[in-house]
Nucleic acid binder design. Structure first.
Lengths: 339, 339
DNA sequence: CTGAAAGCGCTTACAG
DNA sequence: CTGAAAGCGCTTACAG
């Protein structure tokens, strides 16, 4: 495989001149540049990435560090990985996928061995131990998720609180006075998943504010037990005329549960949901809903990370950036107007 | 950040001796080794990965190169990525996730810039252009998928043909004489996805062999149109007493479609399916089925790739390894015994 | 505008 | 068993 010395010899110039055309940081006389470019093409030369990384102290790689808690809905993950990869590539970066169970150890490894220029942390929980691990280093990082305390780190996420309020108001404005609130399993609350807590708190708060009765239904973590839990909740809905769902597994299983209970939407019961866009698409869910926006979130995450890398440092700053992406609600007519 | 020279100085030895303890390839006197290890701990030293990669010509990174055709079922992807990452880590490798649309360009880039020591190709189709791209280089590669012609490359996959035969026989042995075969969309066949073709061909062949009438139902690629297609097929099932499903989206939507059609399983109709394990778990699918085994497949893929990397070459070999993982059928009682 | 030299942080024969 | 030296393939001041 050709190296820069081969190219220099072939073009009759020095290695530094070749390097100048490779980096594009220095002006090179057109004739010379052309000779060099021909030599590069002839020899099928490409820059050795590792050597460049060593010389520049830039790996051009970002780590995507994914904590798998087990409680969350697996199918929702891939779209974010793909979107992050796409966003990173558009900035010239590759993505290192880091899913090992020992996330704290992984962060130390990435930082100490200088494997990446920055990291994205996925599946953020409140009191996430990964944030403390980061504070030992000077590694640029962005949280994909919004914990109560970001510990001075940049963070980006869909605005789950605003989404919750919008969905609650959507029901309220159509005359609904009582609704079931199908939530994630208690295990998810115990883990303090940031998006779970933020949606939950805002939904309850907004419901109180507008005077909607919200009856929380905690789902079992075990998918096997979910169908019965859903049909049970529907059967005992009492005065509730609507259901608001924040639990992807429940959103996926709700159509069957509604069938099972013999309920038509929106004639017998109204439904609003927030769920993975991919899930909604694959299962053709027809609920009025807020869907995740992996592309938008990933773009914002990578943009923020690029800025942090360019600034030449990670860690706690005064100029922390928190970005909450406004939710969009898609009206699919699954809410009956009772007014 | 400390480097190897700092450690050498701190321990009062030469850099090469430090390197010897780092690589573990040379014997170092216990006292010396201990002094060095103390120095390493004191200085919080870790090997700079890029420098080691340059010196050894080993990146300790494998590329996972994922073609997203769009037709396949998205939620099935993540478990494979995670499993590949886990398998690779257990061999000391990290995973670079490569999802860009221009997969051929990506392969050239990875090879020429020496970014990875090897690649795993995911979502293999017959006549996959990525295989030709690989032949331009000397990059170790393993296909996760089994095309009709692997062009001399190692390949690993679940044995979809055997799975098809097992499911067909499962119906036949229980006295079913006619079944609907809910298949992937024609678009998937046109793309020639390797697992789609292999399951399909084997299912039809085995059905012919045992004398089971199999009526292919082509699903629409658009999930929106899938529910109606399924209920329609069920309504017009005629003499068919069973359904065999190879289409994850259809497996996911079938429970609702069965409800819609007022059919009980297995009383009114029997069902067997092959689908993503993750999907089956998340949706608590209760069909007798073969499920994907991302962990097993990934282990085999990485093991094969490691052997290929150790051999010091990629490309076409005489010693090609093809590994088909035996399917396991889980009997969930969704097939009625008609004998 | 171009080149010679030093340096990035390691590993690895090769002497001793 | 340990060390001095060369080398991996780049980039980047610094001269000219």
């Amino acid at each position: 495989m050709a190296n820069i010395a081969d190219v220099a010899r072939e073009a009759g110039v020095s290695r530094s001149t070749v390097s100048s055309v490779l980096t594009g940081k220095k002006f090179v006389r057109p004739e010379t540049r052309e000779r060099i470019e021909e030599a590069i093409a002839r020899l099928q030369f490409s820059v050795n990435h590792g050597a460049r990384a060593l010389a520049t102290s830039r790996t051009m790689i970002v780590g995507v560090v994914v904590q798998l808690h087990g409680g969350e809905f697996g199918p929702a993950l891939a779209p974010f990985l793909v979107a992050l990869s796409d966003s990173a590539r558009s900035e010239g970066y590759d993505v290192l996928l880091v899913t090992e169970a020992d996330q704290v150890g992984a962060i130390h490894r990435l930082a100490l061995e200088r494997r990446v220029d920055g990291v994205v942390l996925f599946n953020i929980v409140d009191e996430d131990p990964r944030l403390a691990a980061l504070s030992d280093h000077d590694l640029p990082a962005v949280l994909l998720g919004m914990p109560a305390d970001s510990q001075g780190l940049d963070a980006v996420d869909l605005d789950f609180a605003k989404a919750a309020r919008a969905l609650v108001r959507h029901l309220d404005e159509r005359g609904h006075a009582e609704a079931l609130f199908v939530r994630w399993a208690p295990e998810m609350f115990a883990q303090r998943n940031s998006f779970v807590l933020r949606f939950n708190d805002a939904a309850l708060d907004e419901a109180r504010r507008v005077g909607l009765r919200l009856r929380p239904i905690d789902c079992p973590a075990d998918p096997e037990r979910l169908p019965d839990a859903l049909t049970g909740a529907l059967a005992e809905r009492g005065a509730a005329t609507a259901v608001i769902v924040h639990n992807d597994a429940a959103s996926a299983l709700l159509p069957a549960a509604l069938h099972e209970a013999g309920l038509q939407v929106p004639e017998d019961v109204s439904v609003v949901s927030i769920h993975s866009a991919e899930l909604g698409r694959a299962l053709a869910l027809r609920f009025t809903s807020v869907e995740t926006v992996p592309g938008e979130v990933s773009n914002a995450v990578i943009r923020t990370l690029m800025a942090r890398i360019a600034a030449g440092h990670g860690g706690t700053q005064e100029d922390v950036r928190h970005e909450l992406i406004a939710p969009r609600i898609t009206d699919r007519g699954s809410v009956r107007d009772l007014t």
